[in-house]
Amino acid sequence: GSPLAQQIKNIHSFIHQAKAAGRMDEVRTLQENLHQLMHEYFQQ
Rank of each mutant, 00 (worst) to 15 (best):
G1H: 12
G1R: 11
S2R: 06
S2Y: 10
S2V: 13
S2D: 12
S2H: 11
P3N: 15
L4F: 03
L4H: 03
L4E: 03
A5N: 07
A5Y: 14
A5P: 07
A5Q: 12
A5S: 09
Q6T: 07
Q6Y: 02
Q6D: 12
Q7H: 06
Q7V: 10
I8L: 04
I8Q: 00
N10T: 12
I11W: 02
I11K: 01
H12F: 13
S13Q: 14
S13N: 13
S13F: 12
S13M: 13
F14K: 15
F14D: 14
F14P: 01
F14V: 12
F14E: 15
I15T: 00
I15V: 02
H16A: 14
Q17Y: 04
Q17M: 12
K19W: 05
A20V: 11
A20K: 12
A20T: 08
G22D: 03
R23G: 02
R23E: 04
R23Q: 06
M24S: 06
M24R: 05
M24T: 07
M24D: 08
D25W: 03
E26F: 05
E26Y: 04
V27E: 01
V27H: 02
V27A: 06
R28N: 05
R28V: 07
R28P: 02
T29M: 13
T29Q: 13
L30W: 06
L30Q: 02
L30V: 01
L30P: 00
Q31L: 14
E32R: 10
N33M: 15
N33A: 15
N33L: 15
L34Q: 00
L34D: 00
L34E: 01
L34H: 01
H35I: 12
Q36E: 09
Q36G: 05
Q36R: 12
L37D: 00
M38S: 02
M38P: 00
M38I: 13
M38D: 01
H39I: 13
H39N: 10
H39G: 05
H39W: 08
E40T: 04
E40C: 14
E40L: 08
E40P: 01
Y41F: 11
Y41S: 03
Y41D: 02
Y41R: 03
Y41L: 09
F42H: 10
F42C: 09
Q43F: 07
Q44H: 10
Q44L: 11
